[in-house]
Design a protein around this nucleic acid. Sequence first.
DNA 1: GCATTAACCACAG
DNA 2: CTGTGGTTAATGC
Length: 224
Amino acid sequence: MHKCNECSIKCAAASNLHPEQMEVMENNSVQVNFKKGDNIFREGALSLNIAFLKSGIVKLHMKGPAREKILRIVKAPSYLGLPTSFGDKINQFSATALVDTSVCFIDINLFRNFIYNNGKFAYEIIVELCENELMDYKRYTSQSQKQINGMIAETLLCMSEKIFQDTKFNFPLTQSELGDMVGTSRESVSRVLSDFSNDKIIEFSGKELKIINKDLLKQISEKG
DNA sequence: GCATTAACCACAG
DNA sequence: CTGTGGTTAATGC
């Protein structure tokens, strides 16, 4: 049996749990490891758990009328899909591991009890939901008004800053997935990436991506 | 009209 | 899965 108490990977919310609540959680949660490419939970399937991403990187995605849409890239530590867990018993989107990943599944009824009985815990959950909602609003506004150069620049910057905290990183998506993320075709992604590379803004070989001219990338992102 | 943007198709590594 | 060229449609001077 794993020990939630001793787990160093806690979100802001869980650190507000009382010792006895922590113990209950230990008895009502399981940790599962996933390989790169594994499906963690699937759109349309029943779910009675909250999924907490302990380590790794995950994509949240849902089927659109034409093709798949990547909603968000999530880096540990973070909850995966609180909206789908509380809004509906059926998952409204899928989660897929982009790298080897470890996830804790917590019983939804238990989680609900924590929210009822522990205000600080609930507050932190609300904070997280609000932050996510705000970021989504920003992305939707960008996506509806920027051209693809701007969208891809924005996405690369975001990955570099928010996910990897480095100008050089292993790009976790295929070009086709990046297209699904910013709402464009894989061909357009390929062209933009080539252009950026020719203009010495980025460098990429295989999956290794390095941002060389961050200022220019920012300009492209802002001007759309 | 002419230029730009980007999607769709096809074919090749 | 990725890179490119041709084609086509929409939009904007």
